[in-house]
Structures are given as C-alpha cells and as structure tokens.
Design a protein around this nucleic acid. Structure first.
Length: 603
RNA sequence: GGUCGCGUAGCUCAGUUGGAUAGAGCAGCUGCCUUCUAAGCAGCCGGUCCCGGGUUCGAAUCCUGGCGCGAUCACCA
C-alpha cells in the first residue's frame, strides 16, 4: 500500500513540477486520529522542488493523486500534510482478498536459511525467569522469521559439563543415598538442582573450620572436602572415568527429562540439541588450526591467545596453559558443528546482553579464521529480568523458578475466570486448557511486549495483570468474535469454514456510502499486518507484533461498541461486518500465534 | 577507567527509524450491561521526553558534552 502511494506520488511530482524524486524517500504515514483519512503524505521534502508553500503542494498533489487512483475518495491538506481518504471500494477489495487468502500476512520465501540458538541452559539447576524470557524471545523471533519467509531451524545448546554439574554430582554422592527423582517425587531438574544447593550448603559448612584458622573465604572453600571432590570429578570426567561418566550421564538424564517437561509446558521446541561435551574438543582443534596458520599465538607457558586489538577488542585467551579449553573455545566448536549440519546463511544467538562482549569476540575470531559463516552471526541480545530486590542469583536462592511461575499464572487465570463465571458449560478438561491458554498468554505477552533490549522489572508479589494492555485482553477480543460467528452460523443455519461463509458481499463497492467509519478504521488496521510481520521479523522484535496485536484488538472493541454486526442495518452490512470480524479473528490468531500465545473459543 | 546498553505521566511501557497538539495500560475520579461476552467502551486527571549545546522547514528520535542506572573488560561459564 505504502509502495503504491509512493510510486504514484513520485509520478505526480514529475508531472506537476518536472522534477524526479526517489519514490522510496517520500514519507507515508498513518493519519493521526484527529484528522480525516487513513494515509498521510508528508510533503515538506517536496517543497523545495515545487518552490511553493507546503499547503499548496499538498493541495496540488492531492488532486493529482485522485486523478491517478480512483480508489482515493477524498483528501484534505493541513499544513504540509496531505491526508488521503481511501474509498469504500478500496477497502472492499482489500477485505475480499484478505479474507479469501488463508496465508494472509505470510511473507514470500526468501531462500535464506537461518539457524537460531536459544535457551542454552546449564544442566545443574532448573530453569528460571531469565531462561523464560530467553525461551519466549527465541521461540517467537524464530516464528517471526519463519512467517516472514525465511527457513528457520531452532536449536538448543546444553552446557552439560564443567565444574557446576560436578558440584551437583559431588553433593549427590555425599548425601543422595541413591535417591531418584521418582523415589523423591521431584521433577528431575529440580531434583538435581537441590543437590547444587546442597553443595553450597555443605561447602559453607565445611569451610567454617578453615575460616576459624584465619583463612580467607575463597581459599577456605577451596580447601573443603566437597570442593576437592568436585574438582577431582571434573578431572576424572575429562579422563573418561567410567563411574564418574555414568553418574554424570544419569544426573543429566534426569535434568533433560525435567527440562523437556518445562519446554512442553512453555510451548517451546527445538529441532536439534547441541551438547558442549560433544563440541568442546572440536573447538580445541580449531584453535590449534589457528595456531598452525599463524592466526593465533601460542605463548611460552603453552597458553594460546588471539590478538583482537585491530577489532577494538583485547587479547583473548583461547586455551589455558594446561591445554584445556575455555567457554569461547567450546563456542567455536559448536559454531563449526552447526555449519557442518546446516550450512546456514545466518546464525542467531539469543543470549543475554551480559554476553555482548563474548559474541563480538566469537564473531571476530571466526572472521580471522576466514569461516564462511562468520559474517552471518548475529547476537540477539536482551536485557535482564530484575526483581525489586535486585538481580537474581541462583546460589542465593533469589530466582523465580520457571515451572512455579507458569503454575502461578495458570492459577491466577483460573481464579479470575471462575470469579467472572462465564464458562459454566465447559467440560473439566476444556476449562483446564482455557486456564493454561490464558495464564500463559498473560505471561508471554507481559514479557514479549517490551523491547528486548530493555530490562524487565518483575515483582513476584504482584500478579501479572489480566486487564488493560495484556494478553488476555487480546484473547478476549478473539473470544468475543468467535461468539458472534457462532451465532451467525446458527442464525443462517450454515455449518462450515468461517472464511468461506463470511466473505464480504460480492458487489461491495456498490454500497460505498454505507460503510461506517469504524469499519474503515478496522480494515486500515488489518491492512497493516503483512508490513508489521516484515518489520517485526527484520527488527527481531516480538514486541512490535505484540503491540500490533493489541491495536487490532483495541480498534475491534471500538468497532464492536459502535456498530452491531448481527443486527446490522441491512444484509450487506451484516455480511461485510462478519467478514471484518472473521478477518480480525484470523489476524489476532496469527499475531498471537507468532508470540506463542493461543486463542480461546470462549472465556 | 575503556566499551556497550538504557533514561518518556505516580507505576509499567509504546512511539511506525526526523513529522501534526508526545500515546496506551495500571493506579485515582465519572458515565455506559432487559441490545453480538463489561477480561469491554467513552470521558476526566496526569509530561522540563534526564540536563546543556548543535544540525534543519521540523528533534523524544540524529551529532556533541555532561549526569544517573546497568552490563562488560578473568587461565569462571
């Protein structure tokens, strides 16, 4: 739509003033609420070419556009702003085309292959609120890119080895008594996490004796038997010790089971899992290859470093003097592995902003190595989730657990729904589904509607809102529409697909005069969906999609209030409004779907 | 200290990449349910867009200098 207007404007300017302008540079925007019209051309940039006053340019351009495009029904010029009113015929055409297109909003295939990594948990403790933001963002960005026309592969990376998991293992060995998640009746990841907490308790306890001897705190903890045991296990793991590996395998297995349950509850999925235990050796080889090619430097003590000062970064350690690998080394291996698997054009890493530096380094290293996938790396950085008490810290138990959070939200949705008492007729399992849809909808919307870069403040004391600018508000609008459509089907005695039934009147352009402003406003909002998809995808911003979904719902509720669908003045208006309603429902369903939020048939 | 990010109503956030009188929600106040679901709609109240300078027809948006908050700069991950 914008493109068309820009083209027409450019042509008109050439006709009127004999000057050529770049069509793409002509600003087209939505008309402000206080003015008539749907699209506004800002003519200030053209004033210089025209050598006339802005108002005169707008006026002249308005006439010229009307001549060129009959779908423009009128215009008004205010200062340098040319407001265009599209006629009912235009909207009727739009409506007919959009309603009949099941793929309305979907981008055409770009041929670009993208691998998107998100979640990236450690396997020694359960997922928390920080992971929740990561998962929701990652999943949604992937869906947006997919819907916008790219080929997207979602992958996870497990940090499944290292000192953290050895700590849980050491504590389990010391106090686990061969219990299992089943025997304890605890979800696997929580079960293992409880030993991570137990480790810290034991270490603090055991450190007391050393502290009494005047040792400093860090040193004292290093001397504790439990810490020594964890270190020992780490070395044994690297050496391939069968017992340690078996325990590691068993405990990680419990964690994966627990995680999978959380992923299901959260509604996120992965096409492939990567394990750092399987890629860190490959990372080491890449570093050694770099040394051989003279790209990285091996120092006298045996350590390997990369000089990134040319990129404005520091010198970076890649291998320790004992030859063991670093965090960054593993990521090099994982990246290589990924390219072997997918040969992707671009790779996205959804990881918190505290790792901005890390990803700059990773990309720079791969560029130095001349890897073909290096330039295609993008770090999708997002801000932390803070509590009123400050930053979350696992060791201090100040995290908000992901499973509890979801359960709480479902509970909140249940009590609100029961309080309103509008769902008496539903079966028990339908109710459960509804509470889940609403609870998760509220949670996901709450997190996704804010700009990813910004920090989110989450107050566990206050439950997430269900009224106002929220997920359930948008869901409610959908449910309202479904109620109308059900009644319409019943009145008409027709069963079938709403899309087919609620097509607009064939001769819609004939009833131009009868369109209510609310109908035009709703159509104008719905018409922005495809452009919003592309923008949200290219900006990697579910927030833009969330805000759009809110606006679609908001304008529909106004429409709902201002005109009656089922009791419209005439059949033509009724059919048309049914078409607008069903298209609105479809757009809401798609927009929320891109955020991972489901829609209820009633609520 | 260097680098990066953020700073908009009492609170939580938008602001279409430089456009009109800066918008929503929550909180507070007022109206609207014998009419398609009131988880809604309409209205009131609420602003030094952190501060100073600059660029131009026009700046919350771009540049520059400050201030504040946060992250990061490990032989941790």
């Amino acid at each position: 739509m914008e493109d068309t207007l820009q083209r027409l404007c450019a042509a008109a300017v050439t006709d009127l003033y004999g000057a050529s302008v770049d069509a793409a540079s002509i600003p087209i925007q939505r008309t402000g609420k206080e003015f008539e019209g749907q699209y506004t051309v800002v003519v200030f940039p053209l004033v210089r070419l025209a050598k006339q006053k802005p108002e005169a340019v707008a006026e002249a351009l308005g006439h010229a556009l009307m001549n060129r495009w009959p779908e423009i029904a009128g215009f008004n010029a205010v200062k340098g702003f040319l407001n265009l009113e599209m006629g009912a015929g235009h909207w009727a055409q739009f409506l007919a085309a959009a309603v009949r297109d099941p793929g309305y909003g979907k981008g055409s295939p770009s041929g670009e292959k993208i691998v998107l990594e998100y979640c990236g948990p450690n396997t020694n403790k359960p997922l928390h609120l920080g992971h929740t933001r990561n998962m929701l963002l990652g999943w949604s960005v992937a869906e947006l890119l997919d819907f916008a026309g790219h080929e997207v592969h979602k992958v996870n990376i497990y940090n499944d080895r290292g000192i953290a998991i050895c700590k849980s293992m050491a504590a389990y060995e010391a106090s686990g008594e061969n219990a299992t998640p089943d025997s304890a009746g605890v979800k696997g990841d929580h079960f293992v996490g409880s030993f991570y907490v137990a480790y810290n308790r034991l270490a603090t306890e055991q450190a007391k004796a050393f502290l009494a001897e005047g040792m400093d705190k860090r040193e004292a903890e290093k001397q504790t038997p439990i810490h020594r045991r964890a270190q020992e296990m780490l070395l044994a793991w690297e050496a391939g010790n069968a017992d340690v590996r078996a325990l590691w395998q068993k405990m990680n297995g419990w964690v994966y089971e627990g995680f999978n349950e959380t992923f299901r509850a959260m509604g996120v999925d992965f096409e492939k899992d990567y394990l750092e235990s399987e890629t860190y050796l490959e990372g080491k080889e890449i570093v050694l290859e770099g040394v051989k090619r003279g790209i990285f430097q091996q120092h006298e003590d045996g350590s390997v470093r990369a000089d990134l000062s040319a990129e404005g970064l520091d010198e970076k350690l890649l291998l320790r003097s004992d030859g063991s690998s670093m965090y960054i080394t593993q990521d090099l291996g994982t990246a290589e592995q990924r390219y072997t698997d997918y040969a992707m054009d671009r790779s996205y890493y959804v990881v918190g902003s505290e790792q901005d530096y890390h990803f700059k380094v990773l990309k720079a290293l791969l560029q130095q190595l001349g890897r073909p996938y290096a330039d295609g790396i993008t770090h999708l950085s997002y801000g932390m989730v803070d509590l009123p008490t400050g930053k979350m810290k696992s060791r201090e138990g100040t995290t908000v657990d992901a499973d509890n959070l979801v359960a709480d939200m479902i509970q909140t949705a249940r009590s609100k729904t029961e309080e309103l008492g509008k769902i008496e007729g539903l079966e028990q399992n339908e109710k459960q589904t509804l509470f889940r849809t609403l609870g998760l909808g509220a949670l996901k919307y709450f997190i996704l509607r804010v700009d990813p870069r910004k920090r989110i403040l989450f107050n566990p004391e206050e439950s997430i809102e269900l009224v106002g600018n929220t997920g359930p508000f948008v869901q409610y609008t959908y449910a309202r529409i479904q109620s109308i459509l059900r009644k319409a089907l019943k009145e008409d005695g027709i069963a079938g697909a709403p899309g087919a039934v609620f097509s607009p009147p064939a001769n819609a352009s004939a009833d131009a005069a009868s369109w209510d402003p609310a109908e035009i406003q709703q159509c104008a909002t719905l018409a922005r969906f495809p452009a919003t998809v592309q923008e949200a995808a290219s900006n990697h911003s579910p927030a833009e999609m969330a805000n759009y979904a809110y606006e679609v719902a908001k304008t529909f509720n106004q429409f709902y209030d201002q005109v009656s669908v089922l009791k419209a003045e005439n059949d033509q208006a009724r059919t048309r409004r049914l078409a607008i309603s069903s298209l609105t429902a479809s757009v809401i369903q798609k927009a929320l779907g891109l955020l991972g939020i489901g829609v209820p048939e009633r609520m």
